[in-house]
């Protein structure tokens, strides 16, 4: 019936003279789970951050559910009205490597914040939803805790609940486990796997290749500013065709499938 949920065409991103993304065309269907892998500094975070306009695109367009983001002026320049960007970001939930919980709010307040301030729900409604989302990530008993008292894994699960509370159509994860102690990685990955089972549309930047293999419906290897290789987990992670992909995987050594 409808086209892809998210569509990217001709995306370029430069920081000053540093040309990081060099023309990316890409689309995500509803229910797809995309894992993005690539070397450090290859632009994985930048790509994800362009999708919800944390970075301004240097060139290219992004279409969300058939609606092209940005307004083209008479002279062809594209502007991005704040209202529209807020709307896009509300629809694309993001989870950061560093969690970025609001330290001056309790766990429950963190999850309620977007509902009250952005969605303008009543405190009671927001509370109910927040409680439900926190239960989903297994933190029902931590409502009144301050973020500073939680382990990294717990903080990241609150951050996921905070993103989920807004009922986003797509979830963006930027290395959600790479600043966690190894023994805390599992609890966060379990939550992400539960989300996958719900059929959510997700993009995940990760170095956990084993997890990516099981999680993803599509894997992308980002190198030299382009999508160097795209395919199913089996194609990209087990039988890569490109020499660069093979070399990247070899450097990662064995990973458990």
């Amino acid at each position: 019936m409808s086209g892809p949920l998210l569509e990217v065409t001709g995306l370029h991103k430069s920081f000053e003279k540093h040309h990081v993304l060099k023309g990316i065309d890409f689309s995500v269907e509803r229910g797809e789970r995309v894992a993005i892998i690539g070397g450090s500094g290859s632009g994985k975070s930048t790509f994800l951050r362009c999708l919800n306009f944390m970075e301004t695109l240097s060139k290219g367009t992004i279409t969300l559910d058939g609606q092209r983001i940005g307004t083209t002026g008479s002279n062809g320049t594209i502007t991005y009205p704040e209202r529209q960007l807020c709307d896009v970001r509300e629809r694309l939930g993001m989870v950061f490597q560093q969690f970025n919980l609001f330290p001056h709010m309790t766990v429950l307040q963190n999850v309620m914040e977007g509902l009250v301030t952005v969605k303008k729900l009543s405190k009671e409604r927001a509370r109910d939803i927040a409680i439900r989302e926190l239960a989903k990530v297994g933190l029902a008993e931590k409502h009144d805790a301050w973020p500073s008292r939680l382990s990294g894994g717990q903080q990241q699960r609150v951050a996921i609940a905070r993103a989920l509370s807004m009922e986003p159509e797509v979830l963006l994860f930027d290395e959600p486990t790479s600043s966690l102690d190894p023994e805390l990685v599992g609890e966060v990955l379990r939550v992400i796997r539960d989300l996958a089972d719900e059929g959510r549309t997700m993009l995940l930047v990760t170095h956990e290749l084993g997890f990516a293999y099981h999680f993803a419906t599509k894997v992308i290897f980002l190198a030299d500013g382009v999508f160097h290789e795209v395919g199913t987990p089996d194609e990209v992670l087990k039988n890569p065709k490109q020499a660069k992909t093979q070399e990247f995987l070899r450097r990662f050594g064995e990973f458990a499938f």
Binding site: E82, R83, N100, E113
Partner: peptide, 10 residues
């Protein structure tokens, strides 16, 4: 960024 990511304005 976290604030903006849940749709808040500046």
């Amino acid at each position: 960024e976290a604030a903006k990511a849940i749709g808040m304005s500046q």
